[in-house]
Every structure is written in C-alpha cells, then in structure tokens.
Amino acid sequence: KGRRAQRLKSRDCVLSEIHLNVTDLGLGYTTKEELIFRYCSGSCETAVTLYDQILNNLTQNKKLVSDKIRPQPCCRPIAYDDDLSFLDDDLSTYHILRKHSAKKCGCV
C-alpha cells in the first residue's frame, strides 16, 4: 500500500522546467537569448475536495448536464516567476515578459 501511495504521489502536480530559446515560445520575438521555462504538470487526483466529489455525483446521476463542468481540480500555476527581459536582435529594443513562467503549482 505504501508503494502505491508513493507512485501516486510521484504523478502529483509539480513544478517542472525546461531550458529554451526565447524564440521557442512562439511569441514572434527575434532574439538569440534563452530562458528557463517553468510549468505545472501532474495529476490532482489526491487533491479532490468534497466540492469535486459532489460535482462528480451530480453529473453521474444527471442532476447536472453540462460539458463545461470539470469535476476534478487542475494542476495550474498559483504564483508566477519573476519577469524576464531580453535584448532584441536589432540590438536596441528590450522586451519584457511578465507572468510567463510558473513559480508555484497547485491543484485549483
């Protein structure tokens, strides 16, 4: 049982990071600068609340019919990383990215 709990935990919502070129972000900037992009991924199964359980029950016994209801929390940023600035390849324009990268994740 202990091992199973651990396996579940390892899939839990966590902060991950990847080293990228700014151009990889697909935002249309021309620069050779780079960044660490941090994102949230993992499951929120273990974070189900009574609210989620009720929603689940209501959709299953058809008291609520909507495809826009999400009966499980999502792994999302609950705080963002500091701003990122970089110099454009024109060597005269600076750009600043705000709230572009996660700092803390949570099941919300």
């Binding site: 080293h19 780079e34 960044l35 500091d82 701003d83 990122l84 600035s85 970089f86 600076y94 600043i96």
Partner: peptide, 19 residues
C-alpha cells in the same frame, strides 16, 4: 546575457532595471 537569464537573481534584477 544568456547566463544572466538562467540565474534567478540576475534575471530578476536585470528585468527590474530594464522595466
């Protein structure tokens, strides 16, 4: 510049003056 943005302190204070 690349090394700066990969370092949390440098990245933070760099954009703190670029802004």
């Amino acid at each position: 510049a690349k090394a700066c943005n990969l370092n949390d302190i440098c990245k933070k204070y760099r954009s703190a003056y670029i802004t």
